[in-house]
Amino acid sequence: MDSSANEPKELIIVQNISFSYGYTDVLTDVTFSINSGDFLAVIGPNGSGKTTLIKIILGLLKPNQGGIRIMGKPLDEFTDWSSLGYVPQKATHIDPFFPVSVKEVVHMGLLSSRKFPRFSKKEEELSAHRALTHVGMERFKNWRIGNLSGGQQQRVFIARAIVNQPDILFLDEPTTGVDAETQEHFYDMLDKLNKKEGITIVLITHDYGVVNKHVTQVACLNQRLVYHGSHEEFCRSEAFKEILAEGHHMISHRH
């Protein structure tokens, strides 16, 4: 969390990324950048390459073409993984019987920053406590993760992702399977992390209708980057009209 982040700087640069699974093109020549302080929504229909793009940025998938720079460094030279937080999509589909407590889940997040000699135990406890307090889950710390509701689990996964006080937080469809009211609280919490803590947020969603009042930037994907810019301009753009014309699918996919 950089307090001197008043002037936007480019945290992540995505350059001419193309990716295909076998013969199916998923992403074609995608170029854009993410500035510090952004609250970016990555939107697009199912299969438009949203998750693939995030996985490429995080080094989980190798692009066929193009490159990523994170904080000025090419991806393969980047080592400061604790400055990135990631809440993967399947987090809502975790094994409900896995015997792991909320506290243990949050401690997992500390592993990326653990070096020899490692953080003192006290410091780790404090970081975990702080992260859980942030998401309002401190009193559940000894609960088994499977005994929590979907929304509560997501809060815990966010706590795990922010326990290292990252500069940037990636969330892939974080509110899938979460009721509308909880969703509102959830996005308010992300707002707070973005505005008060200065954490840059990259949010994959197909519910633009729900998140649009929170985000500052939009990247609209449909294999290619259809639009990238501010939320206000997006609403006036051709891309937005097209999406509206295409119907409800893109804006709100939930039934």
């Binding site: 995080l58 080094g59 989980l60 080592t79 993984w81 604790s82 990135l84 990631y86 809440v87 993967p88 399947k90 987090a91 975790i94 094994d95 896995f98 792991v100 243990e104 889940v105 997992m108 997040g109 592993l111 990326s112 996964f157 795990r160 992702a161």
Partner: peptide, 16 residues
């Protein structure tokens, strides 16, 4: 080992 078993993708992304 616990992290990788519980959430492979997230473990990978955290540089493990």
């Amino acid at each position: 080992f616990m992290y990788v078993t519980f959430d492979r993708e997230a473990a990978k992304a955290s540089g493990i």
